[in-house]
Design a protein around this nucleic acid. Structure first.
Length: 488
RNA sequence: GCCCCCGUCGUCUAGAGGCCUAGGACGCCACCCUUUCAAGGUGGAGACCGCGGGUUCGAAUCCCGCCGGGGGCACCA
């Protein structure tokens, strides 16, 4: 039997790291086993449905290269893959459970339900349904029907005994049935709850492995019971650990629970994010940190997944992204970087202008979004923005005259360099330091600010070589003009 | 209140009785390289394996108890 794994997001919000990590594990398992990866939309909550969410989910998967074999957009042998289009199926199955005396209609109002729960809580009892409608007499049922209230369908949970669920990572987990209540499987509006829809779909779609967050572990016995009631074999369940924020609380917007599309905007590379997420709660061995998608696929093994929660380590993700950036070839990097640079300088930049500066930036950025700040001076027209203080730095702070002399002499040499290459520029300027009786560092620092507007930048002469003689001279002269007037 | 899960450096993790004086990675600190910033190299600090009992010649690894953290107890998934 082929392995079939599904990623079944509910379109209520953004595809954040936790969801996508589950999707990644789903995908890895399917690809490793040579099975199918299925995308299914669980939109059975009419109240929380968010229109743009389905598209965001698919875009996130696309961006990360997690391709699916069956899904709402491409169809498949078990279509439809959107639960709101399968209501009749759930209704029939709920009906079947009622006929088999494994479920019943419940007419209780939400007010009564709330009251019951509150009373139980006041008595320090677990808040749950009191099974009032489970034992309605035919007369009482007829009366309830006559009122016209739309009933829900509840599952008849065994009153005693225990239910053993099997978790692929934890082994048997046993629950006492008397801690479970009669949960709703079909809402009054005709929509199923997760407890019915996911079970019915997973069975009908021949899903073999269900990976989900461990917040589902406490619901596992319910699902086990539903499978048993239908006479079906349950799939393999694996409850994955949570991804936590730095404060060990649930990952929130404050520390990275953004949509993964947000990571794209920040300039993270899909391969880097895959690498990072794949190593959150899973490991290959005691030393592998950088691992390709292909290696993941060939080595992925569910049994090496961890059950303990993992804190999201943003610094490590950034480091890893830098590793991937440096591993790109120059063309790839330029293509990836261009949109970020264009956004920063506010106009289009052609590859011809871009390619020469790419090597200077590639080993200096961790995120593509840093490129704007780091390289905009290559494209800015007119005067740069910087202060005289930063231009003079520590070395020239007390002697602007010396800075003026240095800048003038550098400009002269720059004008006369025959072969406009960084080697020639260095050969022309480095000796100047000795002539001016100073070290090369401070001199270069002065020129660096004059030419780039900042004290930290790519190597000076390579930068000048790319900038071109005209701009370099212009910027040196501009720097000269900013120096305080010479009173001597 | 009840039920379930989890517990190795700050963080991600390796570890399935002796290979562990607990290994790797991020981050941090030095030093090297160096025109700045990065990158790279070398070294370092950092975990009494949550705590307490057992079992065993021997336990991070097995058992029990406790503590701490998290999750669930909806006509949400």
């Amino acid at each position: 039997m082929p392995v079939r794994v599904r990623y079944a997001p509910s379109p209520t919000g953004e595809p954040h790291l936790g969801n996508i990590r589950t999707a990644l594990f789903d995908w890895l398992l399917a690809r490793h086993e040579g099975g199918q990866f299925i995308l299914r939309i669980e939109d059975t909550d009419q109240a929380r449905y968010a229109e743009e969410s389905v598209g965001a989910q698919m875009e996130a998967l696309h961006w990360l290269g997690l391709d699916w074999d069956e899904g709402p957009d491409i169809g498949g042998p078990f279509a439809p893959y959107v639960q709101s289009e399968r209501l009749e199926i759930y209704r029939e199955h709920a009906e079947r459970l009622i006929d088999n005396d494994r479920a019943y209609r419940c007419y209780c109002s939400t007010e009564r339900l709330d009251r019951v729960r509150k009373e139980l809580q006041a008595r320090k009892q677990p808040p749950r349904y009191d099974r009032y409608c489970r034992s309605l007499t035919p007369d009482e049922r007829a009366t309830a029907e006559a009122t016209g209230v739309a009933p829900v369908v509840r599952f008849k949970t065994p009153l005693d005994g225990e239910t053993v669920t099997v978790d692929a990572l934890r082994g048997d987990v046993t629950f006492q049935n008397d801690t479970l209540d009669d949960f709703v499987i079909l809402k009054s509006a005709g929509f199923p709850t997760y407890h019915l829809a996911s079970i019915v779909d997973d069975h009908l779609m021949e899903i073999t492995h269900v990976l989900r967050g461990d917040e589902w572990l406490s619901s596992a016995p319910r699902h086990q019971l539903v499978y048993e009631a239908f006479g079906w074999d349950p799939p393999v369940f694996a409850h994955l650990s949570r991804i936590l924020g730095p404060d060990k609380a649930k990952l929130s917007k404050r520390h990275g629970a953004h949509s993964v599309l947000h990571y794209r905007e920040q300039g993270y590379l899909p391969d880097a994010l895959i690498n990072f997420l794949g190593l959150l709660g899973w490991s290959l061995d005691d030393r592998t940190e950088i691992i390709s998608r292909e290696e993941f696929v060939s080595h992925f093994d569910l049994s090496r997944a961890l059950t303990n929660p993992a804190v999201f380590n943003a610094e490590k993700l950034d480091w890893m992204n830098g590793v991937y950036i440096r591993a790109m070839n120059p063309e790839e990097f330029a293509e990836a970087a261009r949109p970020f640079l264009e956004r920063a300088v506010g106009r289009t930049v052609d590859m011809g202008r871009l390619m020469p500066i790419m090597p200077l930036l590639q080993e200096r950025v961790k995120l593509l979004s840093e490129i704007g700040d780091m390289a905009d001076f290559f494209f800015v027209e007119g005067a740069l923005e910087y202060t005289v203080e930063s231009l003079l730095g520590k070395k020239f702070a007390e002697q602007p005259d010396a800075a003026a002399v240095a800048l003038t002499r550098v400009a002269e040499r720059v004008e006369s360099v025959a072969d406009w290459k960084h080697e020639a520029l260095e050969a022309a300027i480095r000796p100047l330091a000795e002539e001016l009786e100073m070290k090369a560092g401070p001199l270069f620092g002065l020129v660096r600010v004059a030419v780039t507007g900042r004290s930290a930048a790519p190597p000076l002469f390579e930068t000048m070589a790319v900038l071109g003689r005209e701009i370099v001279v212009e910027r040196l002269n501009d720097a000269l003009k900013r120096l305080p007037p010479n009173f001597s």
